[in-house]
């Protein structure tokens, strides 16, 4: 565990600017902007706020995962790293996820208290972040590349956002209310596939 923490410190120290960028954007721009929108408290405003919050958090989640895996999966260090760790780590992905949640949490809580009672809460967004992160992890696992994983995920994200992909394959549920984004067979299927994928790699127990 200590080695993971040390590795974390190294990542954060070296990529400070890249990590700070989304965080400053979230708290210095998005939050005040959403606050302003929510002062009217009308329904259309809330949907708008919720929708954009969801989109930004998902994009930032993808960005955080990319930063986390950039070094491990870089062409320079990949080979030598693999001889040390054998498999790229699901645990590492979970670490990235926790870190990003930690950064998003104040914003998410604010969201929850302001449009929570009305439209369900932000839990669906965080769950979607988990789904996006595990999808990205899977893509990175097969492509063995962090940039590739990010490219695929961003592409898929925009496909979902612009509704190019047909409804059942839109696993990232963008532009709908949180209450209606949960029970969705394809999403459930994907979640169960990921769970079995993780368990089969035994990464949760490493």
């Amino acid at each position: 565990m200590t080695d993971m923490v040390k590795l974390w410190k190294l990542h954060i120290k070296k990529q400070m600017h890249q990590y700070l960028f989304p965080i400053t954007f979230l708290y210095l721009f998005l939050l005040p902007y959403h606050m302003q929108l929510l002062t009217d408290m009308d329904e259309a405003g809330m949907v708008q706020v919720f929708d954009s919050a969801q989109k930004y958090l998902l994009l930032f989640e993808i960005w955080f995962q990319y930063l986390g895996f950039r070094m491990v999966l870089s062409p320079e260090l990949k080979e030598a790293s693999y001889s040390c760790v054998k498999k790229i780590k699901g645990r590492w992905m979970l670490g990235n996820l926790c870190f990003s949640f930690l950064c998003f949490l104040p914003y998410a809580l604010w969201m929850f208290f302001h449009c929570g009672t009305y439209y369900g809460n932000l839990l669906p967004v965080l769950v979607q972040c988990i789904i996006a992160a595990s999808m990205m992890y899977t893509v990175m696992y097969f492509l063995q590349s962090a940039t590739g994983g990010m490219a695929v995920m961003v592409f898929y994200f925009f496909c979902c956002a612009s509704r190019v992909v047909p409804e059942p394959f839109r696993i990232l549920r963008l532009g709908i209310l949180p209450l209606s984004c949960f029970p969705h067979w394809c999403m459930m299927l994907v979640i169960s596939i990921f769970v079995s994928f993780f368990v089969s790699l035994r990464i949760l127990f490493m």
Binding site: T2, D3, M4, K6, L7, L10, M71, L77, A80, S81, C84, V85
Partner: peptide
């Protein structure tokens, strides 16, 4: 240091 972390060399 990165490799030392991966190799779990004690801090």
């Amino acid at each position: 240091e990165y490799f030392a972390c991966l190799k779990k060399i004690p801090a």
